[in-house]
Design a protein around this nucleic acid. Structure first.
Lengths: 219, 219
DNA sequence: TCGCAAAAATGACCAATGGTCAGGTTTTAT
DNA sequence: ATAAAACCTGACCATTGGTCATTTTTGCGA
């Protein structure tokens, strides 16, 4: 019986070692230009061996992304549990998201160089997709908690079901980060640093949340 | 002298014919899975001939995108010149952007399946990049006109230089469209149609613009 | 009209890369 | 010790963007 456990443990260790090598290679060379051959070399294995552990290059990428999303969720949880007022907590949550992408090179590259939708392919293992969805749900719940708190304390107003409002906030903020990090800003278009732009957008949304959706008048 | 003009005209016609064939192929088969061989077949030319007119696959894509952005700018110009109040005009502008992407299949696919930043590569012809930047500038100016009008009429408040504020609005809205169209919404996350989500986000931003950035109090 | 040079087009070829799989090596169980 | 199972290897395969030697077409001058 001990043999099975050891073998499972060793198999898991090799899988993790391959992921670590892939991460190092992706960070060093960029996602698009890192080949499976190069990852295999970094892992000191044959290329064919990689396919014993991952069904495709996409599945390898998703494995790395799942780890990052888990770490990000932990950071966001800390924010959600802090004693800040809801508007400041919301701003802090999205600052955390941005900072994480800035400090974690692989995550940054996935955000900027990969169409994540294309990674969610039928040849990805189902449990990896489920992990991705699960971690996303936890992020949503965290932001929902902050918004709910803000509504209860009178800082925010809802213009629809809270779930929908939260989704919209996240869409806008994630989208902004993607634009900022996708080189979709024509040169010379803005002179302020990305953090300032992102902060302003968060504040714009927070101000919008802080205003009842009923008024149709100026001022 | 007549021969040179005719040859230039014919060369331009062939270039346009290749672009049309590429568009048809991309729409029919998707961007990622359309090969240059398939485009060549659609154009009834040899594959090598494509490279007499475009330096790379990316340059071909950029050529198509430039046409789309020009058409989109025309639509947005119509909105900017309409007699609507600035908040409604702003909402209409972004609705136009979304509707265009919905109705124009190639544009939709570029938005969802392509990392545009990767298209802006050194092997793209400089004038194509310049066109891309130029069209972007026109879009920015249109939105800037609307915001400026709203400020003058007392609908909107600026939290920074108008150029920056406009950039932030565009970043948030473009980003939202990208998220919505990139299948980055986990299944079952939202039940409302994309248009409703986008409309809500625009309204949230408009409400934020309609509130002076000074208040720090709830209600 | 003909001959030649230039321009345009062709399609076989090349290099690169994700993925496959027959064969080799190592581990396990009896 | 032996056979079977598990693991690993690296040559091979299919695909595709891009190249380039060759072929075809066009334009021009005699």
């Amino acid at each position: 019986m001990g043999t099975i456990q050891r073998k499972e443990r060793e198999r898991d260790q090799r899988r993790k070692a391959i992921l670590a090598s892939a991460r190092a290679a992706f960070v060093k060379h960029g996602i698009a230009t890192t080949t499976m051959e190069r990852i295999a070399q970094e892992a000191e294995l044959a290329k064919g061996t990689l396919y014993l552990y991952f069904r495709s290059r996409e599945e390898l990428l998703m494995g790395l992304l799942a780890d990052d999303l888990a770490a990000l969720t932990a950071s966001m949880t800390t924010v959600a549990e802090s004693p800040l007022a809801p508007p400041e907590k919301l701003a802090s949550a999205f600052r955390t998201f941005y900072t994480y992408s800035q400090e974690n090179q692989f995550f940054y590259q996935v955000m900027t160089q990969t169409n994540i939708g294309l990674l969610l392919q039928p040849n990805c293992e189902t449990s990896i997709i489920a992990d991705f969805i699960s971690v996303n749900e936890r992020l949503i719940s965290l932001v929902e908690g902050i918004v709910s708190e803000g509504v209860a304390a009178g800082y925010f107003f809802l213009h629809g079901p809270i779930r929908t409002v939260v989704a919209e906030i996240i869409i806008a903020m994630k989208g902004s980060v993607m634009i900022l990090r996708n080189n979709l800003i024509p040169p010379g278009w803005v002179t302020e640093p990305e953090q300032v732009i992102l902060h302003d957008i968060v504040q714009l949304i927070i101000r919008g949340l802080g205003r009842s959706p009923s008024p149709t008048q100026a001022n």
